Amino acid sequence: MASQGTKRSYEQMETDGERQNATEIRASVGKMIDGIGRFYIQMCTELKLSDYEGRLIQNSLTIERMVLSAFDERRNKYLEEHPSAGKDPKKTGGPIYKRVDRKWMRELVLYDKEEIRRIWRQANNGDDATAGLTHMMIWHSNLNDTTYQRTRALVRTGMDPRMCSLMQGSTLPRRSGAAGAAVKGVGTMVMELIRMIKRGINDRNFWRGENGRKTRSAYERMCNILKGKFQTAAQRAMMDQVRESRNPGNAEIEDLIFLARSALILRGSVAHKSCLPACVYGPAVASGYDFEKEGYSLVGIDPFKLLQNSQVYSLIRPNENPAHKSQLVWMACNSAAFEDLRVLSFIRGTKVSPRGKLSTRGVQIASNENMDAMESSTLELRSRYWAIRTRSGGNTNQQRASAGQISVQPAFSVQRNLPFDKPTIMAAFTGNTEGRTSDMRAEIIRMMEGAKPEEMSFQGRGVFELSDERAANPIVPSFDMSNEGSYFFGDNAEEYDN
């Protein structure tokens, strides 16, 4: 993207840094990872977990959730003011799984939030270390993106479920800051804005008074975040219109849905970061690795190297396929839920299948599930090659597409044709070009129609051997075009429920 120079890199967003050079960025990201790792080690000690239990991804998720809940100030305040039966607002906890007599047992633990905050700050040299908290939120978000298709949420806001490739980060909490905003897809931002506008339509006082002023500035800020994701002048001009509207209503909703559809071809720039579970960072720190000293990046080879040398386990339900569970977590670790499966298959070195073909449910185990038949197995999170994460949407291309997802959002900077089903997408653009945004709409449609099938995206960008740390010898991959490109292809993934 041309304006790259004016933006802070995501590592800076990730670490609240002012302008830093590459070495400083690597050190501050490393410091953040160190903090998460030290916190995780301490929690495993508190909970008396064995090494194996500490490497269980379900335990990692519970521990991450506990610290996120302990620092969720708004919710904590709300819980104190609106006490609900049987919930102690000062405590947080969740299921911890232990191996007892050759069987997995679930144990519900409860801790004072104050105590968890103390352990977290102690692991982070006394700081609140917001960057580390956001990092864990993005890992949870990436896992949700890989596990669930947001059909219901899309339909509720009037969008087409086939636009799911635009929904990265749709389950990120509001408090995820600049680093969170960077990884949100165009569809996620559109959905947040539509929800806001709908509230304004239904509630006369939404934009009024002292609160209304705050609401208005939040609305304009979200519009600017979305505008910054678009790469064409016409899309940005249309966002200006939406932002400046005196009284946002149905016309703005129409414009936003139009823009979301246009992003299936004229893709937005959305950041991709490899955020790993805390149970990967903990053992690495415990083994003596100093992330701050060595430096770390979320968008280069580092996460690949770390996963190459990590042992992570997962509980497996009786009829689940461990290899499929591994694929789910591998995609989440690489922030690749909406990437082209052919690119992923090449990088991973084994075939990556669409969601609907995987015999696996989510990673988390519900409290009512029976533990008797639970097994555990090693997650295979290694890769054959590594590639640089991208934040450009890439230019655009036609490809055989599917009944489910009709476009992709690249996660890796790797040369390819970008699949999208042009006739299906263009069919949504018939007729409606009147109104105050008509010239911009016409211009956007013209650009979409001009998108050429034979153009290559990320020209000359390749993948790298894991021994090639400096990215000196790019390998331009070859793809098996007979395979499906979309992950949520004609899909039956479970729906995400809060």
Rank of each mutant, 00 (worst) to 15 (best):
L418M: 01
R216W: 04
S3Y: 02
P248K: 10
K90L: 15
E115P: 08
F258R: 04
G54E: 14
D255R: 09
Y289T: 09
E254D: 14
E254S: 12
E24R: 02
L328G: 09
S353H: 14
E294I: 01
D203G: 08
Q20L: 12
G158M: 07
R174W: 14
E220T: 09
R400I: 02
R461K: 12
K357P: 11
M371Y: 07
N417C: 01
S413D: 13
K103T: 14
M222W: 12
R117L: 00
R150A: 13
A493Y: 10
G268Q: 09
K351S: 09
T215H: 12
S176L: 04
E375F: 07
A182R: 05
C279T: 05
P173W: 06
D145T: 05
M13W: 10
M137Y: 10
Q58F: 09
T232Y: 07
K184W: 09
K273S: 09
T430L: 06
A286E: 09
C333Q: 05
A284V: 05
D480C: 00
Q168W: 07
S60P: 00
R175M: 05
T424V: 00
A428W: 08
R75A: 06
G228T: 02
K87R: 06
K48E: 12
G282H: 08
D101E: 13
S245F: 08
S486E: 10
Q149F: 11
N142A: 13
Y52L: 07
G295A: 01
E210T: 12
E454D: 15
D101T: 00
I365V: 08
M13Q: 14
W207C: 06
K227Q: 02
V343F: 12
M163L: 01
F488L: 06
L49Y: 06
C279V: 08
S310C: 01
T232R: 01
R106S: 01
H272Y: 09
I425S: 06
D101G: 09
P89R: 03
I425K: 14
A85N: 06
A233N: 13
G490I: 04
I388G: 13
V329Y: 10
L358A: 08
T171D: 10
G94P: 03
G268F: 12
A129P: 01
E192V: 15
L61K: 06
E11L: 01
N397I: 02
K77R: 06
A472H: 09
T378L: 01
F39T: 04
N205K: 02
L110T: 15
R267I: 08
K351A: 05
L315F: 02
P303W: 09
M239H: 09
A237M: 02
K273T: 07
S262A: 13
I316N: 08
N59D: 07
R246N: 02
G394K: 03
Y289K: 08
G490L: 11
R384L: 00
I41D: 04
G209A: 13
R156S: 13
D372N: 05
F464M: 09
N473F: 09
K184N: 14
Q311M: 03
K31Y: 09
E14I: 07
K452P: 13
E73M: 12
P277A: 14
I347S: 04
A27D: 09
E220W: 11
L466Q: 00
A2G: 14
D468P: 08
S3K: 00
V100N: 15
L110G: 10
G435F: 14
R389D: 12
M191S: 01
R261C: 12
R355P: 10
Q308S: 15
N309W: 01
K325H: 13
S478R: 00
K91P: 05
F71K: 10
I406H: 12
E192N: 03
V186F: 03
V312F: 03
W330A: 04
K273V: 09
N144V: 15
E11V: 05
R400A: 03
A260L: 10
T146H: 03
V299S: 05
L226G: 07
G5E: 09
K214H: 15
R416S: 15
E449C: 04
A366M: 10
D290V: 01
P477M: 11
K103L: 01
K98S: 08
E449K: 04
A332Q: 05
E107F: 07
Y385D: 12
P173E: 05
M371I: 12
I57S: 05
T151L: 10
L381M: 01
W207G: 13
S141Q: 12
E114P: 08
D302T: 02
R389A: 07
R106D: 10
L298G: 06
R461E: 12
I425P: 08
N498I: 04
A178T: 13
V186I: 02
S326P: 11
N483Q: 01
L110H: 13
F39R: 08
R199F: 07
Q20I: 09
M159L: 15
K87C: 04
G404A: 13
Q311T: 05
V476M: 15
K273Y: 09
D160I: 00
C44G: 04
V299L: 05
G94L: 03
A373H: 03
E220V: 14
S274Q: 10
C164R: 05
Q122F: 07
R470V: 11
T188F: 13
T134P: 01
S217K: 13
F39K: 07
T92P: 03
M136I: 02
D112A: 00
F39V: 14
F420K: 07
N432M: 00
D340H: 02
G5Y: 03
Y97W: 11
G282S: 05
T130W: 07
V343S: 07
N142G: 06
Y219E: 10
N76Y: 05
E369S: 04
N211C: 13
S402A: 05
E14N: 14
E292K: 03
A179M: 10
F71C: 02
E494Y: 14
Y496C: 08
P474H: 09
R8M: 11
D421H: 15
A427I: 15
D340T: 13
N125P: 00
D101I: 03
R461W: 14
F304H: 12
R261K: 09
S376P: 12
T396G: 04
E455N: 14
A373P: 13
A22C: 06
Y10M: 10
L358H: 14
T62I: 03
S170C: 15
R156P: 15
A237Y: 09
A278P: 02
E24Q: 01
S287T: 07
S478V: 15
G86F: 02
T134N: 04
E455R: 15
K198E: 13
E443F: 10
M239S: 04
N432H: 08
D468H: 09
D16Q: 01
M440K: 02
S50H: 01
I57V: 05
E455Q: 12
V155H: 04
L344Q: 08
G126V: 01
V186T: 01
Y219N: 05
M66H: 07
P303Y: 10
L166Y: 10
A22L: 12
S50A: 02
F71N: 02
S3D: 02
M159P: 02
Q235G: 09
T396A: 15
L68E: 04
Y289S: 02
D112C: 15
G177D: 10
D497K: 02
M371A: 02
I116Q: 09
T45M: 09
M1L: 14
T171M: 03
E24M: 00
V463A: 14
K48T: 05
Q364I: 15
A336E: 07
T424M: 02
A22D: 04
S359W: 09
N395C: 01
L264C: 05
A284W: 09
S457Q: 00
R26W: 08
L344F: 12
T430Y: 05
F489W: 10
A233R: 01
Y10F: 01
K351V: 02
L143I: 06
K77F: 14
V352D: 07
M167Y: 05
R355N: 06
D51H: 01
R236I: 07
N211K: 06
R461P: 15
M222F: 15
K422E: 06
M374W: 04
Q12C: 00
R26E: 04
A401V: 05
Q12I: 01
M191Q: 08
D497P: 05
K422F: 08
A428F: 00
F291P: 12
Y10G: 07
E443M: 10
M239L: 01
V109M: 15
Y496V: 13
K184L: 03
A27W: 01
E252S: 11
A323K: 14
A237P: 05
P161C: 06
